[in-house]
Design a protein around this nucleic acid. Structure first.
Length: 921
RNA sequence: GGGCGAAUAGCUCAGUUGGUUAGAGCGCCUGUCUUACACACAGGAGGUCGGGGGUUCGAGACCCUCUUCGCCCACCA
């Protein structure tokens, strides 16, 4: 036996050196590298990492997202799948450009000072230098991605995919260029998609303006607007065709205040007669709805606000902007215009008007709707396929309530504005010839001369929305569009996509569309949407609020495993994770405590097991097992089954589509963690280890060898169960087990398989059950000790009566019960005569005679209290059993269970009443 | 304005087709430094499952309604 001083493991778990030594060993041995040849005869299991922005710094949201993926990928790797986790980064067009532009601003420059080419080079250089650091940070939290396949949305390979997608969609008739009112960010100087222009509730104002009739200034129409500055671009006032109030006005002309432009009153059912005055000013160039109205009535579309958000005369707006307003910022102009309108008597009133205003998702600037020429993808045909994938069961979303949201969005899908007026990104692969008027050339390869006239060409200035490369991620990272891409053949379609609900539309739905459109299959069968990390006030953690947690701080303080455990254990399906950024000690206590506990379990257990070889458990005869041995082996089976049930199924059983029964199962990570934790802590440590200490203390003997074998087996399997969540500490401990070979990795060790219930002998099962009885005996004695404040050091004597009579085999447990409960135990079928405290449980009745120590009154009171309680419950139970309808209608199994329960309660009640009599009540 | 979801212990949450005395973690109370672990061990308190109504032999679970939160979508100027 190894004495504690010879223990090879330090008394405190040191995360930092453990993590620093194991991660490189995994990667050096290619543990995370997927092999497409192996994928031929195993199931591949593929996750593509949501690529973080290339300039991003790891925050706790990334930590959560990637920990979840790592848990799944490590689980499947151990379960025998060919696991592939594709990592990478996103070039993040607007976001990255903004970062570099900020640097330029600090140096008093703009991107225009540099020019396009130099600017793009500068951004590329910036990315080269600082980009991708986040991937190294992911290594620090243990992520087992296949770094040999690291991808980047702006790499040459992925650029090929982007062009292919654009050109093919164009060939399919799904890409077009159109003059539309789009969301425009004046700060970023670019258009935005609907999804990129986010609503913020704003306490706005509704300005009511009076527009007089051109030929009769005594009459007027009042219109309401939230953006009075747009009145300079008004081309009409619309009223509802059936609105009698305005019937006489339709067709007449109004004169715009300030610029005197004459505009017609038109009838259009877009107008809601119940809102405001029932008359709407129409500004086609600066409002998407007005644009539609304008088209219907063939109205002009003057642009009065430019790309920087400055009021000035743009296309078709000559004579519309008074000199004193030209050049003003749109918000300054608003103030000025309101003042001028008031002076002119055209301002009727201003109402408070809370409403939603769109903001740029990158810089939060108020979005300006603006007429411009943009590229769009016609989404309806793509959306159809994405809907079919979900409805056919090819795809599922967990939690399933998000499926309705997904369907709702796809059914109401609108065309996707994919062009951006920035410089950092995939340039639109379209060329124009200035010489002849040939149609624009859409090409997979760069075009240098016009194919029609041979003249010079110029490429479209716009770049593509960054999501236009991300939406190809599951196929482009595997080699699409290369026809002979081996990875694509071996690993597509993938399995699970793990992300937050925020980007269900931005990214997830579009990936499904691109996968279905280009590959004919959805890129994954499961979308797992996890919650958001929030602080104690339920606010989302963010840099600007200053309530974030740096995962690397947590790693430094408590280790990556503690971080991972805390997040996973708190991660109910789709539930937000609450952490307190001001108290990391408390927030990460679950992970830190569990890791420490596990370390100590390992330290103790391994020192007792020693380095001598152990027998495999399968070689032990069932007769050699003690009750505790049989029990812990049974508990291990149960724990494995619970972990499997919480995690799985890994894929649809039929390989193609989810059945209704499977559809919402699995990926309950917190349940998995809890099942594993309970086994290790509450069963292995609290009961098994405690109960076999005496056996291990013996110098030799068969019994000690059996205990060593069981210990080594059970701990080995426990570490396997835990490894996906806490990879470092488990790997480190595993290598101290005598049966572990030096060149193996826990990360690649087979996932445990529970023994089938029917392979166990009846005697082994009875043996295991006996330990349950012993546990209840121990707890009962402890309860009495505590109740009567017995001196902690003192031994009490106890008479244990197992339900079901004296069990000769049970007598062997008296020593175990005694040592766990600090008692001298007698196993007897008969109650002792003398007065004693007693506890009656379903499996056992325990009497603890505490001569002179028992407060008889207190014990009588306690017993009669328990009797009253149980009697009430028994009465209710008997009432139910006496109910004819219950007996007739309830399932037989339920009725029988209730009868058995009633009998048991009756027995316990009798025992307690006998006891009470003995106490002289 | 539509749609969806939630309300269970002080806090964060489980509770799988209705069926034992509703659970876990953290927190709280009482003991204990019992040589693996005080980041621990042992014992304990705490819930009429948001209110009301209904279906059922039986409801935390199903239906209706009210209240309070949260999320998503939307062209109310």
């Amino acid at each position: 036996m190894t004495s504690p001083d010879q223990n090879p493991l330090p008394p405190q778990y040191e995360a930092a050196p453990t993590e620093a030594s194991w991660y490189p060993r995994w990667t050096e041995h290619g543990v995370f590298t997927a092999d497409r040849d192996r994928a031929a005869d195993r199931e591949p299991f593929v996750i593509v990492m949501p690529p973080p922005n290339v300039t991003a710094v790891l925050h706790v949201g990334h930590g959560l997202n990637n920990t979840v993926q790592d848990v799944l990928i490590r689980w499947r790797r151990m379960a025998g799948d060919e696991a592939l986790w594709v990592p990478g980064t996103d070039h993040a067009g607007i976001a990255t450009q903004n970062v570099v532009e900020k640097q330029l601003t600090a140096a008093g420059q703009t991107r225009f000072d540099l020019g396009r080419e130099a600017f793009v080079e500068r951004v590329a250089g910036f990315v080269e230098q600082t980009g991708g650091e986040i991937l190294n940070q992911l290594k620090a939290i243990g992520c087992s991605a296949d770094w040999t396949r690291t991808a980047y949305t702006f790499s040459p390979e992925l650029s090929v995919a982007v062009r292919e997608a654009f050109v093919r969609l164009h060939e399919d008739g799904l890409v077009y260029k159109g003059h539309r009112v789009i969301h425009w960010c004046p700060r970023c100087g670019t258009s935005l998609s609907d999804e990129e222009a986010e609503f913020t509730e704003t306490a706005g104002k509704l300005y009511h303006l009076r527009y007089p009739l051109a030929d009769d200034p005594t009459q007027s129409v009042t219109v309401a607007t939230t953006r009075p500055e747009t009145m300079l671009g008004d081309v009409a006032v619309a009223v509802h065709p059936e609105d009698e109030r305005y019937a006489a006005m339709v067709g007449r002309e109004l004169q715009l205040p300030l610029n005197g432009v004459r505009i017609p009153v038109v009838a259009d059912s877009y107008t809601d007669p119940a809102f405001g005055s029932g008359a709407v000013k129409i500004t086609p160039a600066h409002d998407a709805n007005d644009f539609e109205v304008g088209k219907r009535h063939s109205l002009a579309m003057p642009v009065v606000i430019d790309a920087e958000g400055i009021v000035r005369e743009g296309d078709g707006a000559a004579g519309r902007v008074p000199a004193e307003l030209a050049g003003l910022d749109r918000f300054a102009a608003r103030k000025q215009i309101v003042a001028m309108l008031e002076a002119a008597g055209a301002l009727v009133k201003i109402d408070a008007h809370p409403h939603s205003v769109r903001h740029c998702y990158r810089c939060d600037t108020v979005v300006e709707p603006r007429l411009s020429n943009q590229w769009f993808v016609r989404m309806q045909p793509l959306a159809e396929k994405a809907l079919t994938a979900l409805r056919s069961g090819e795809l599922r979303i967990l939690p399933d309530r998000w499926e309705a949201v997904y369907v709702n969005w796809l059914e109401g899908i609108r065309d996707w504005n994919i062009s951006r007026q920035i410089w950092w990104g995939h340039r639109v692969p379209v060329w124009y010839c200035d010489h002849c008027h040939a149609a624009p050339i859409v090409s997979r390869t760069d075009v240098t001369a016009c194919p029609s006239c041979g003249g010079t060409v110029r490429q479209d200035e716009d770049v593509l929305d960054t999501w236009f490369s991300s939406w190809l991620w599951p196929i482009s990272t595997l080699g699409w569009p290369n026809a002979d891409a081996a990875d694509l053949a071996a690993f597509y379609p993938g399995d699970v996509l793990v992300t937050a609900p925020e980007i269900l539309f931005f990214w997830v739905s579009r990936m499904v569309m691109s996968g279905c459109w280009f590959m004919g299959k959805a890129p994954f069968h499961t979308v797992y949407l996890h919650g958001t990390v929030r602080d104690m006030q339920h606010r989302k953690m963010s840099k600007s609020l200053g309530n974030g947690i740096d995962p690397l701080d947590v790693v430094r303080l408590y280790g990556a495993d503690a971080l991972r455990w805390t997040m996973v254990a708190g991660l109910g399906l789709g539930v937000d994770v609450m952490l307190d950024p001001t108290d990391l000690d408390k927030s990460f206590a679950p992970g830190r405590n569990f890791c420490t506990k596990l370390w100590n379990i390992g330290r103790f257990l391994l020192s007792r097991v020693g380095e001598e070889p152990v027998q495999p458990v399968s070689a032990l005869s069932a007769d050699a097992l003690s009750a505790a041995d049989a029990w812990i082996l049974a508990r291990l089976d149960a724990a494995i089954a619970e972990c499997d049930a919480a995690l799985g199924p890994a894929r649809p059983a039929n390989g193609a589509t989810w059945t209704a029964a499977e559809r919402s199962r699995g990926l309950r990570l917190s349940e998995y963690a809890e099942a594993a934790r309970r086994f290790v802590w509450n069963e292995l440590a609290d009961w098994y280890l405690e109960s076999i200490k005496p056996r291990l203390a013996a110098d030799s003997g068969v019994d000690r060898e059996v205990a060593r074998a069981v210990l080594a087996h059970v701990f080995d399997h426990a570490l396997r169960l835990l490894h996906p969540i806490i990879p470092f500490i488990t790997e480190a401990l595993w290598h101290h087990l005598p049966q572990t070979s030096a060149d193996a990795f826990l990360a690649q060790a087979p996932w445990p398989v529970a023994r089938a219930e029917d392979t166990l002998s009846a005697s082994e099962r009875a043996n295991a059950a006996r330990f349950d009885t012993a546990q209840q005996a121990v707890q009962s004695i402890r309860q009495v000790r505590s109740e009567y404040a017995v001196n902690p050091g003192a031994f009490v004597s106890a008479v244990v009566m197992p339900t079901g009579g004296d069990d000769a085999a049970f007598a062997a447990l008296s020593g175990v019960i005694g040592s766990l409960a600090r008692a001298t135990v007698t196993i007897s079928p008969d109650a002792p005569a003398e007065a004693a405290a007693s506890v009656v449980t379903p499996l056992v009745t325990v009497h603890v005679p505490l001569a002179g120590m028992i407060d008889l009154d207190k014990e009588r009171q306690r017993l009669s209290g328990e009797i009253t309680q149980l009697d009430t419950q028994l009465t209710a139970l008997l009432g139910r059993l006496g109910n004819e309808k219950f007996v007739a209608k309830a399932p037989v199994a339920v009725v029988e269970a209730e009868r058995a329960k009633a009998a048991e309660w009756q027995g316990r009640l009798d025992a307690m009443r006998t006891k009470l009599t003995q106490l002289g009540a």
